[in-house]
Simulated scan of single mutants.
Amino acid sequence: MSNFAARRTMMVDTQVRPSDVTKFPIIESMLAVPREAYVPNDQLEAAYVGGNLEIAPGRVMLEPRSFGKLLDAVDVQPNEAVLDLGCGYGYSTAVIARLAEVVVAVEEDEALAADAQRRLSEHGVDNAAVVSGPLVAGAAKHGPYDVIIVQGAVEDVPAALIDQLKDGGRIAAIFMEGSLGVARIGHKSAQGLTWRYAFNASAPVLQGFAKSKAFAF
């Protein structure tokens, strides 16, 4: 049996803290949530390595550094509702659930959504629900949300998702521009959405979030 608790501490101490993730609730959550409980069964040994972890073709669990920095930049508060897009097996949802009041997670694959819900329930995460549907559609009937976090990269964010964000809300996403990626935080106001640079990161572009080629002139 591998000593996952020691690896978890090492992950936080070597990958997360040195990346300027300083907010205590995030550190505490990443130390508390057993990452190995939310990876494919054949990936247990890879649960704590640096780098994005492939969980399905074209789908990854964001590396601890990028995920921690996204959380730090978007600054989830204890009274907030969060939409977690592309939760995979539920790790991101489990961490965010310790920071937020409630989390609604979306996963396109029905079997994966059910698996994530089962894992979350087994670990006592009772303020989160996983719904199955297209990531680009979000989960409007449970919204609007204070925060939306995209677990993967985008080239474009559909208006239907921005509509699910409350005024004053924030959205965190990694934008891929060719091979280079940039994490940005979008702040919504009455004037619309303003994106601000947060840090450099990369991930595969999620299905439905590529730029529409039809509009290229």
Rank of each mutant, 00 (worst) to 15 (best):
A81Y: 10
F217C: 07
A201S: 13
V131T: 07
R184T: 06
A139H: 09
A37R: 14
N52K: 01
R8W: 02
G68S: 11
G169W: 02
P144D: 09
L62Y: 04
V102C: 06
S66H: 11
Y38A: 07
N52W: 00
S121E: 09
P204F: 13
Y145P: 11
E80M: 08
I26A: 11
M11A: 12
E177F: 13
A94S: 08
A129M: 10
G152P: 01
M30R: 01
F24E: 09
V12D: 00
H187M: 07
H142A: 13
R170M: 03
E45N: 06
S66G: 05
D20L: 11
G169K: 01
R118E: 10
V103T: 03
E45G: 14
K188M: 05
G86V: 05
G152H: 04
F67P: 01
G152S: 11
V49G: 14
S29G: 05
K188R: 04
E101V: 03
G138L: 14
D75W: 15
V104K: 03
P25L: 07
D20M: 15
D156N: 12
G51L: 02
K141V: 07
D126L: 10
A6V: 10
V12C: 00
R17D: 00
D72V: 11
G169N: 04
S66R: 08
A172I: 03
G86K: 01
A139C: 15
F215H: 09
A153S: 09
V33K: 11
N200D: 13
G192D: 04
A137R: 07
P134F: 06
Q151H: 08
A172E: 02
D13N: 04
D75P: 11
V39Y: 06
L53C: 02
